[in-house]
Simulated scan of single mutants.
Amino acid sequence: MTHTAHPAAPHHLPWFITSPDQSDVLMWIMGIFLLIAVLAVGNIFLRLHTLPERMAHRSQKLQFEIVAVLGLLALFTHQHVFWVAGLLLALIDIPDFGTPLRRIAGSAEKLAGIPPGEGNLAADEIERAAISQKQLEH
């Protein structure tokens, strides 16, 4: 069966107009383009959304975890204030208070004659000895 163009149709049709028995090339091209565009925009959105987490990754663990939680809250609640707060927190360097305090504790342990890092164990032993002494007194 031969399909002929309608007499009212123009003689030179564009390339994307197909015969009834052929596949629609433009539809396939646009479908592939749409799939690639959706994946590309989704990838850009994901990279932008995880920007605060990637920035906070090089900082302290606690700061990174707070930024990660703020990012998840922003993702699931669609409240952009959480993302902005996470970004601001990732940009700020929180001072490290743990290292000086550990050094002070180590120096105090050294002065007390306790091996470094065993101050908690010594305190537990002292507490157990005090409890056992109280029990012996009663």
Rank of each mutant, 00 (worst) to 15 (best):
S132N: 12
Q133R: 11
H6A: 13
F82V: 01
T4Q: 12
P52N: 04
L62N: 06
P95K: 05
L62I: 11
E109S: 02
G31S: 15
A129Y: 13
L87S: 03
P95A: 01
Q60E: 07
P14L: 13
D24R: 09
L72Y: 15
L34E: 09
I36G: 07
V84E: 08
A9L: 15
H49A: 09
A105R: 07
Q133T: 10
S19P: 03
G119M: 01
I126Q: 08
P115S: 06
I66L: 07
D93T: 15
H12A: 06
I32Y: 09
P95Y: 04
R128Q: 10
M27Y: 15
A74L: 00
A9I: 08
F45K: 09
P95M: 05
G113E: 01
L73I: 03
P7S: 11
L62G: 02
N120A: 11
I92L: 13
G98N: 07
Q60P: 02
K61I: 07
D21W: 15
I32A: 13
H3L: 13
T4S: 13
L136D: 15
Q63K: 09
F76Q: 05
I114D: 00
V38I: 15
A85D: 00
P7I: 15
A108S: 10
A123E: 14
L34I: 07
H12Y: 11
F16Q: 11
V67N: 01
P14T: 04
